[in-house]
Every structure is written in C-alpha cells, then in structure tokens.
C-alpha cells in the first residue's frame, strides 16, 4: 500500500481556477466605472484635424459639443456640411437657445467655466464655423475648444 501512495503524490495538481472569477470581476468593475455610454448618435461624419499644441478638457459636464461635418447619409441630407446639436440637425439660429438650455443644467457659479467644443470635419469651409463663432459670441459663450487629434510638433 505504501508504494501506491508514493506514486500518487508525484502527480502535479491542476492549477486552481478559483480566483479566476475574482480577476474577471475586477476587470469588469474597472470597465463599468470608466464606461461612458455614448450620449449622442452622430449624424455627421467627422474626421478631426491633427494638431500638436493641445489642452485636455477636464470637467466633462461643463463641456458641450457642436458637431459639424458632411451628413452620414448623403442620399437623404446631401453632401454639404451640416451642424448637429445634441441629437438633431440644427441651424446657426438655434445656437443661442441651445446655449441657454445648457446653462440651466449646471450650477450658476460654474457657468463662466463652461466650454463649447467644436468637433469639426477637417474638410469643412470656415464660413459655417465663423457663423457659429459669431453666434457664440452673441450669447456670451466665449470659451471654445477646437477638438483635434494629437500629432508631434513640426520641426
């Protein structure tokens, strides 16, 4: 009998997978916390330009986005760049009301820190962007950000 026992002891036991759920849960929680559900469905195509002198936008709840680019479905909306506020196409005239609406969502003392981020397709002409900027000035939303992708500084 003793012989048999010795033989059994030599076998290497399987690696325990009991801690696997723990590891997976940890990853799960990480992703649950960092996940931001896409707030809006983009109806315009945006290829942002590249730039090197960037500032990161913090305090996301103080940032509102204006999207400008050619529509995703040109057969319905044509190929001319259009502007999208929240979920719908809009015109420049809608901006002051939109800004007012956004201001109501934040605390009063935070209003001066609000930033409007312009996500614009790189092929867009400046005409529409200048019009947007003029409207932003009129509604006193003076902090803006030109959203870009990162590249190295030119030599």
């Amino acid at each position: 009998m003793a012989k048999f026992k010795n033989k059994e002891k030599k076998e290497v036991g399987a690696v325990s997978t009991a801690s696997l759920p723990d590891i997976v849960f940890m990853l799960l929680f990480f992703f649950m916390v960092v996940t931001v559900m896409r707030e809006q469905e983009l109806k315009v195509k945006i290829e942002r330009p590249y730039a090197s002198e960037l500032t990161r936008l913090e305090k996301k709840h103080l940032v509102d986005y204006i999207n400008i680019g050619p529509p995703m479905s040109p057969e319905v909306y044509g190929t001319e760049p259009r502007m999208q506020l929240d979920d719908d196409f809009a015109t420049v005239e809608d901006i002051p009301a939109w800004i007012e609406q956004n201001r109501e969502k934040v605390l009063e003392q935070e209003v001066p820190k609000m930033t409007t981020s312009l996500k614009v397709d790189e092929g867009t002409k400046m005409g529409i962007i200048s019009a947007v900027k003029q409207k932003l000035r009129e509604s006193n939303a003076l902090k803006i950000n030109y959203s870009t992708r990162k590249r190295d500084r030119t030599e």
């Binding site: 799960l28 931001v36 896409r38 960037l54 930033t115 000035r137 902090k143 803006i144 870009t148």
Partner: peptide, 24 residues
C-alpha cells in the same frame, strides 16, 4: 458582462486647441 462593457466603452477624452473669443 466584461465583454459587453469592453465593447461599449468609449474612452474618448477630448483634447484640442483652447481659445477665448473676444466679447461681442
């Protein structure tokens, strides 16, 4: 669940060129 969150995660941190418009 993990795979679901992996797929839906968008880690888009926004960065760009900050500018101050002149007041009207």
């Amino acid at each position: 669940l993990l795979i679901f969150f992996l797929v839906t995660t968008t880690m888009d941190s926004d960065e760009g060129i900050l500018r101050q418009l002149p007041p009207p």
